[in-house]
Amino acid sequence: MTTLTLTTSPILTRPVPGALANIAAVAGRELRDALRSRWFILYTLAFTALGLGVSYVSAASSGGAGLSNFGRTTAGLINLVLLVVPLMALSAGASSVASDRERGMLAYLLAQPVSRLEVLLGKYVGLAGALLACLTLGLGLCTAILAWKGQDTGVAAVLTLAGLAFTLALGMLSVGMLVSVLARRASVAVGTVIFIWLVFVFVSDLALMAGTIALRLPIDQLFLLSLLNPLQVFKMWSLHAGDASLDVLGPAGLYAMEEYGPRLHLIFAACLSAWIVLPLTLAAAVFARRSPL
């Protein structure tokens, strides 16, 4: 009787779905949900509008005389990315797990034949897709504006910027998800990432500025400390990739060029990769132990 029922049951003839299949399924679900969500639409609109503003203004101020304004346009877009993208990625990550847990969705999802790592990675991939969509739409329209206004901007610079912005977004998404698995409530998670955003965007830089003046920080220490902030790394990497030089950043930039030369790309890549991999690994470790309820 027992064996009969088990063997006739279709479930046993079907293999357990692989990790990739489950990640893809969860990612697709998450992506669809993110694209429909208010935060995504809001951030995308804000990013796109501000980006268009930056491109239009910088293209207009260079107009007529055919000014070569590549540097300022890129700088404006870098500035915009620094402000908007971390906030967007952090808050997307922060609400992902925490709000699901709050709504009871997480327990229901984990009661299915999926592993927790699959759910976490699926969410990560899905949200990364949403962020990619936001960035490419914003920067794509900016590029169109630049082309329309006859701006003397290299296409490689724009594509590089998009790629690096996405890398930064991945890192911030990682941090956001770590906060999300740690926080008890979604509101706490969102509050925490806003604080983290403030630290990355303003507090750490201002502190480092103050420290440089007050403690007379040597230039090598200043540069190394600035590498701790992923936003600074993104900024320096974008400038370095666009101009093949960091000299615009003054003595510290020149120091970095002379000291590390072509290895700078590797250093920047390593820093940003660490911001992607480490928080996500930690998040996975915490998520595996935490109750989903």
């Binding site: 830089d205 600074q232 615009v248 003595p251």
Partner: peptide
């Protein structure tokens, strides 16, 4: 005062200052 601070150019912290 401190030319090294040019490192923070283009960052939101500069605008804050």
């Amino acid at each position: 005062r401190e030319p090294k601070l040019r490192l923070f150019l283009f960052s939101p912290a500069q605008q804050a200052v």
